[in-house]
Design a protein around this nucleic acid. Structure first.
Length: 600
RNA sequence: GGUCGGGUAGCUCAGCUGGAUAGAGCAACAGCCUUCUAAGCUGUGGGUCAUGGGUUCGAAUCCCAUCUCGAUCACCA
């Protein structure tokens, strides 16, 4: 509740109760909500909580307060009392003022970042360099990008970061397979994107490995586990990892070359997706960092050492288990690396808050990390945010890379763009565009459909994606919203060619319909929606808000003339209203990382 | 088994800091383009809000129990 109108009403209600019933009530005890659609009013005061004070029936109490509001302020123009609900109609003049204010503020709903703003670091994406990005990563990237935008819009300095998992046995598998069967293939020689090329060798390794295990089982009559342990291929991969860790020049240069291919591939994917990072960390240069911090903790008595030399954190006082931090041989585990990365980041930036965008399968990991960072003295450790999101599932269940059921990010985006082009051509929407414009529009629509589809659902929920039923372009979709924006832009262009000059302010004398005041009311709600989205880490809130706004606008568009309105004040008002709807659509979609075209 | 998160229309999802007759979209059916972009608008049908109890003037929403789905509880990352 932050619009000026809401504040006015609240303080009026408080005043009325004081005068009518001689009781002080706090603002928080006044339930002011948006009136349900079936009633023609703007705000509703729930009077049930005041019955004990008024000692009257609900309807009588509502009437008394309503009468008071009418006679003491021009803000409320009429009211109706139904049961315990006092429905208030706000005067047109108030709404026009509200619209004028919104209109004058280009950044309406957004909070500016200042020197004093807190610094938030957001980690997202975090890919492995042995395979291309898939649908799960897409959700991660879109959420990460969007939440960055939303936190910026709430007045935070944001540093977007990516921790690339560029080392480990899985990387060695790809490297080994390429060495054995690659015949020197490169992205150039094959015409493949680097990440896809490497992904192919990862799959190839798995294929050969499985065949080898099966052969061992039949040859020697041993169990699958034994065969896997004996597998020469796997042993070779392990040996390669040892050589990598020892800094073997040949292995390292192969590693550098192949990872380079992958990064080039990732960069293309990121660019198309529209995400970026301010600072990238590589696990190969952070994975040793955690050790010193853990040893420091051991010295300070935060951690304990086992007889075999392994180091543990005892989290039983926190209701959790014991957690290993260093193996007996002194090597680090996942948790140690995250501590190390945290240390580097803390050294690099004055972080006030750390946000990790990571899937919900790691809820436990981050619960532990939070406790450990706190114990190690990181100021933001205790309050770190694990922005946890659900899995993307296919109709037949979870995606599995080995079974080839993953939906590839590049393929998916390309497909969406192709579908957008087909649909646009069918509808004849591209007829008046140059080829370049068409490509640009079609890209925005295809990606808009995909992004909106993913971001409109509550992040914490698992979501289903059916590749066979392609993502819709009608209804509650990105293109629907983009279309509305394009439509408004078209009106504004026409207004300009007709030589209609917009006043900087609309005179407060015109009469509005409830559709129009309702739209202004919705525009004003953008401010609270952005705040809510920031507080609850929910791009979905923004998505659903824009959808409601757009639906409302389309009804208005259908029911009323804008450019053909004869009363020039009213016409100016409607153009201005439309313009500001477009502005909020654009701002809101920007928070989701979705572009909006000016024509489509 | 412990912990965490879900279960709302045939499908995909809103609504969850308690408020009026539970909402959208898709799919199905029926209308609206000589009029500002029909990727739009309007209408019809579709619900035991998993189940049972409790708190309250009022519960999809809060509490308890049960059922059910998922994640996690690795010297993998």
């Amino acid at each position: 509740m932050s619009s000026t109108i809401e504040h006015k009403i609240k303080s009026l209600v408080r005043q009325s109760i004081l005068e009518l019933y001689s009781q002080e009530v706090s603002d928080s005890s006044i339930q002011l909500q948006k009136t349900n659609k079936e009633f023609t009013a703007h705000y509703t005061v729930v009077v049930f909580p005041f019955l004990k004070i008024s000692k009257k029936a609900p309807e009588a109490t509502a009437n008394e307060i309503g009468n008071y509001l009418i006679s003491h302020s021009a803000c409320v123009s009429s009211f109706s009392a139904i049961k315990g609900f006092l429905n208030l109609v706000v005067a047109d003049e108030q709404w026009i003022n509200e619209l004028n204010e919104i209109h004058l503020n280009e950044q309406f709903g957004l909070t500016e970042v200042s020197e004093q703003s807190p610094l938030v670091m957001i980690e997202y994406s975090s890919p492995n360099t042995n395979k291309p990005l898939h649908l799960g990563h897409v959700r991660n990237n879109l959420l990460g990008h969007s939440i960055s935008e939303i936190l910026k819009a709430n007045g935070n300095k944001v540093i977007k970061t990516n921790i690339v998992n560029d080392r480990g046995i899985h990387i060695c598998k790809s490297m080994l397979a390429w060495q054995k069967w690659g015949k020197g293939a490169t992205p150039e020689s094959t015409g493949k994107k680097g990440d896809h090329l490497i992904g192919d060798y990862y799959v190839l390794f798995d294929k050969h490995f499985k065949a080898e295990v099966a052969a061992l089982q039949t040859e020697k009559g041993i169990s699958k586990e034994e065969a896997e342990a004996q597998s020469p291929l796997m042993n070779e991969a392990r040996e390669m990892l040892r050589q990598w860790e020892a800094g073997d020049a040949d292995v390292r240069s192969l590693w550098t070359k192949m990872n380079g291919w992958v990064y080039e591939g990732f960069e293309k994917t990121y660019q198309l997706m529209g995400v970026s990072f301010d600072k990238i960390y590589y696990e190969s240069s952070t994975y040793l960092e955690g050790k010193s911090k853990v040893m420091e903790g051991l010295k300070n008595g935060v951690f304990v050492q086992n007889e075999d030399g392994s180091v543990w954190a005892d989290l039983t006082p926190n209701g959790l288990d014991q957690k290993l931090l260093l193996r007996a041989d002194g090597t680090s585990v996942y948790m140690t690396q995250d501590i190390g990365t945290a240390k580097l980041r803390f050294d690099d930036y004055p972080i006030n808050k750390m946000v990790y965008v990571v899937g919900n399968e790691q809820n436990y990991h981050f619960q532990v990390l939070s406790i450990l960072l706190d114990k190690l003295g990181f100021g933001w450790g205790k309050d770190l945010v694990h922005f946890s999101y659900g899995m993307v599932e296919l109709p037949e269940g979870k995606m599995k890379s080995r079974e080839g059921t993953v939906v590839d990010a590049d393929d998916l985006m390309e497909e969406m763009i192709n579908t957008a082009r087909e649909t646009s051509e069918e509808l004849g929407k591209l007829d008046e565009c140059t080829a370049e414009e068409a490509t640009e529009i079609v890209r925005m629509i295809g990606l808009g459909a995909l992004k909106y589809f993913i971001l409109k659902v509550d992040p914490k929920k698992n979501m289903t994606f059916n590749p066979k039923e392609s993502i819709d372009f009608n209804g509650n979709t990105g293109p629907f919203i983009q279309y509305t924006h394009a439509r408004i832009c078209s009106i504004l262009r026409k207004a300009e060619t007709q030589g209609i000059i917009l006043p900087s302010e609309v005179p407060a004398t015109i009469q509005l319909t409830s559709k129009e005041t309702g739209l202004i009311q919705m525009l004003a709600e953008f401010e609270d929606t952005v705040k809510d989205a920031g507080n609850t880490f929910s791009p979905a809130l923004i998505a659903n808000y824009i959808y409601e706004l757009v639906k409302e606008y389309n009804q208005f568009y259908h029911d009323y003339s804008i450019l053909k309105e004869e009363n020039s004040d009213l016409r100016a008002f409607r153009i201005l209203l439309s313009k500001n709807v477009a502005k909020i659509i654009k701002s809101g979609m920007q928070l989701l990382g979705i572009e909006v075209p000016e024509r489509m």
